[in-house]
Design a protein around this nucleic acid. Structure first.
Length: 420
RNA sequence: GUGAGUGUAGCUCAAUGGUAGAGCACCUGACUGUGGCUCAGGUGGUUGGGGGUUCGAAUCCCCUCACUCACCCCA
């Protein structure tokens, strides 16, 4: 067992019937997002490392210690994408998408990679469902994005979700607040943990969502970011809150919510869910008004969210799971050598008529074939032996009632179509 | 990167130093062409790997690997 080949640490195989749940979630995402005018974008899994250093931020943990980074055969530094937004920003700039009618609405579903110790709800390869609205400063776009997100989650059967929301202000607000926070914390420097002391230089705002009890207490008396907001940022945030209230979105303003990516400006929000253990954020999101410009594009305000698909699927109601995995194929059981080929031909004909048919291929006994049909959850069995072939019929068995009758193949098609 | 817990049959787990077991699953039969329920039988194990202590180790000790959870961080 120790020598056996296994999937790489932090990655996993998704197998049927679980994959049916994944597909169902993705189908709903596509349908809902499409109804808001979103189109799908697929960007490469591999990007140049520089994109994330510039886009996500050098001081972030993601870039600093969690990226899969390596040199290709010509020595170029490449990274597996750790998140979606920077790459979508790159594509936006590369393809001059600002020429399209703005805002541009894009969604993306796929795998992302971070080198972290795996635990519940955290994998080295994980999947995100991501949507970005580029080219509108808000606040109405902030609201539309949140409404779309909630519509999607509700369609999955998730109710009573609380949106944690905050603003991190614009550039000017952040600079002013940053200075105030640093001068407040500076005297208490030796009471801070190692990480926070480092962040005092690199990214002081991140200290705000520290969970260390001693630091939490210290932060009670810290200056409030909301007191340093520019009038424009304050106005923006208040409008977002007012609009969301109008749409009866359950909100919780969370002043300590800062998020770990450098590109966020103004509105940031999260959705957390119970039953996930300590990795409980299923959605992380925010506005990033400077990213496109920083990546060399025209100044373009944007907002987007990332849903952790792995975690989302963990909290799906059982009813959704059951509906997604429900299947009741017909089982075709040939009896005897002669019937094998006839059976394959009949199965082909049924499938052409849109019926899901599993053919018994191994020539096992009728007994064990029926047993298997039962285990597979088949609703009907079709028995085809020499007798039936001679009469041009099949024996049709309802596996729920045990009822059994002889049918012509035409009647069989009819009967199976009716029952689906 | 740090800490804790767990590794025994395909799966879920027993066996606290003395013959490696049960349930489920799988195969066969009762039932020569009829599932679910039942009954009988059967296949399946270097107890994660390596070393040590001991007359004797799944069990105690050391090393190692893997998995899980938590910290951190985030989706």
């Amino acid at each position: 067992m120790s020598k056996a080949l296994r999937s790489v640490k932090g990655t996993r195989d998704l197998l049927p019937p679980q994959t049916a749940v994944w597909n169902a979630v993705e189908e709903i995402a596509r349908r809902v997002f499409t109804s808001y005018g979103y189109g799908e974008i697929r960007t490469p899994v591999l990007e140049s490392t520089d994109l994330f250093v510039r886009g996500v931020g050098e001081s972030t943990d993601i870039v600093g210690k969690e990226m899969y980074t390596f040199a290709d055969r010509k020595g170029r530094s490449l990274s597996l994408r750790p998140e979606a937004t920077a790459a979508i920003g790159r594509a936006f700039v590369e393809h001059n998408l600002q020429e399209l009618p703005l805002p541009v609405r894009l969604y993306c579903i796929g795998p992302f990679f971070r080198y972290e110790r795996p635990q519940k709800g955290r994998y080295r390869q994980f999947f995100q469902i991501d949507a970005e609205l580029l080219g509108d400063p808000g606040p109405h776009s902030d609201v539309e994005v949140i409404l779309m997100l909630l519509r999607f989650l509700r369609e999955l059967g998730l109710e009573r979700l609380v949106v944690l929301i905050n603003t991190v202000g614009d550039e000017a607000s952040r600079l002013a607040y940053r200075a105030a926070l640093v001068s407040y914390l500076e005297p208490y420097k030796d009471q801070l943990g190692e990480d926070s002391r480092r962040r005092l230089e690199s990214n002081p705002l991140r200290i705000l969502d520290s969970k260390a009890p001693a630091e939490r207490q210290l932060l009670e008396g810290a200056p409030n970011l909301h007191d340093h907001l520019s009038p424009e940022s304050r106005e923006h945030f208040e409008q977002v809150l007012a609009l969301l209230e109008r749409f009866e979105v359950e909100l919780e303003v969370a002043p300590q919510l800062v998020r770990g990516l450098d590109y966020y400006t103004r509105t940031v929000f999260e959705i957390v869910s119970q039953g996930l253990g300590s990795q409980d954020a299923i959605v992380g999101a925010g506005r990033y008004d400077r990213l496109i410009g920083d990546l060399g594009g025209p100044p373009t305000e944007a907002i987007g969210f990332a849903i952790g698909q792995d975690r989302l699927i963990d909290v799906l109601p059982e009813s959704f799971r059951a509906a997604a995995t429900a299947s009741s194929p017909a089982m075709l059981i040939p009896i005897g050598d002669q019937a094998q080929v006839e059976g394959l031909a009949l199965a082909e004909r049924l499938r052409q008529a849109g019926i899901v048919v599993i053919a018994e291929l191994s020539g096992r006994s009728v007994r064990s074939a029926l047993k298997q049909a039962n285990r597979r959850g088949a609703r009907h069995a079709i028995l085809l032996g020499e007798d039936e072939i001679a009469r041009g019929e099949v024996t049709f068995r309802d596996l729920e009632s045990g009822e059994q009758l002889a049918l012509s193949t035409d009647d069989l098609v009819q009967r199976l179509k009716e029952s689906t």
